[in-house]
Nucleic acid binder design. Structure first.
Length: 268
DNA sequence: ATGGCAAATATGATTTGA
């Protein structure tokens, strides 16, 4: 005897995840395992750290996935892996001349998915911070037109900004510094004001929830982390969001990325 | 007070990350 569960007609479930893998070369086995064992339909990756000519396209397509990617040597690089086809693939911000490969977008099952690796910024008085702020400015302009064009949209990725003090394990130590500065938070608030919602905060969540932990000082075991990997949703997509979780399991693996996946599920 | 880990790079000392 078996029990059958019927989904309502015209109702499909979609799970989108974002994961900064800190080198896809090192993490490819974990990524393949994740897609093969977890109910994830779309996996957005950041910090692939490889040029397109060495991207493991064959391994991913052999496993049955659709893939889009744009990368560079050593740093940055983004990719989208999905179970169903991707259309209207956009690589990089169209309004920002940028040698660094930090953004890729695709439409999957009627949802516009934008995978971003926001600039780290290093320190507030550095050139890199200036670059971070101008990159975020260009992202804002791009999102304005993307949101207008795509009612169902998810902007996901490593934002390198902790939205609030509760997203920082030790706010008194980090306060005002890179990743938590008022300037960066204002830029994030600007994106939110375009009509986006932080999916994680749509639901009740455990206290001290983070998506990144320092490799040093046993950061993960001490839960010395930051929540900087975000899933931002337009209203009409947020209305269909049934859960958003941080999956800490991959951070427990051997040779883990310092980030762990964040997942959101939708009833489309 | 500082660095402490990991990844990549013509691989051995440096840069970057967050």
């Amino acid at each position: 005897m078996r029990f059958f569960f019927y989904a309502p007609q015209n109702m499909t479930s979609l799970t989108i995840a974002t994961w900064n893998v800190n080198s896809l070369k090192v993490r490819l086995p974990q990524v393949l395992d994740y897609m093969q064992t977890q109910p994830v339909d779309v996996l957005c990756l950041q910090e692939t750290k490889m040029t397109d000519d060495v991207f493991p396209l064959q391994a991913l397509t052999d496993a049955g996935f659709h893939v889009s990617f744009t990368g560079q040597k050593t740093y940055n690089g983004v990719a989208i892996i999905s179970r169903t086809p991707q259309t209207d693939i956009q690589k990089n911000l169209p309004n920002f001349e940028d040698p660094q490969q930090r953004l890729i977008a695709a439409t999957i099952q009627g949802v516009r998915i934008i995978c971003a690796y926001v600039v780290n910024g290093q320190a507030l008085d550095s050139d890199k911070f200036e670059y971070k702020m101008s990159w975020l400015g260009a992202l804002h302009a791009y999102m304005q037109s993307e949101i207008a064009a795509h009612p169902k949209l998810a902007l996901v990725g490593d934002f390198n900004i902790a939205p609030e003090d509760r997203d920082v394990h030790n706010p008194e130590k980090w306060i005002g510094g890179n990743l938590v500065s008022p300037q960066e938070r204002a830029a994030l608030a600007g994106l939110i004001e375009l009509g986006l919602t932080d999916a994680y905060r749509l639901f009740e969540q455990p206290e001290k929830s983070y998506s990144w932990w320092d490799y040093r000082q046993m950061g993960f075991r001490r839960n010395a982390g930051l929540r900087i990997d975000l899933i931002l949703l337009t209203k009409s997509l947020a209305d269909t969001c049934s859960s958003c979780v941080i999956d800490k399991e991959p951070r427990r693996h051997e040779q883990p990325s310092d980030h762990t996946p964040v997942l959101a599920t939708f009833a489309l």
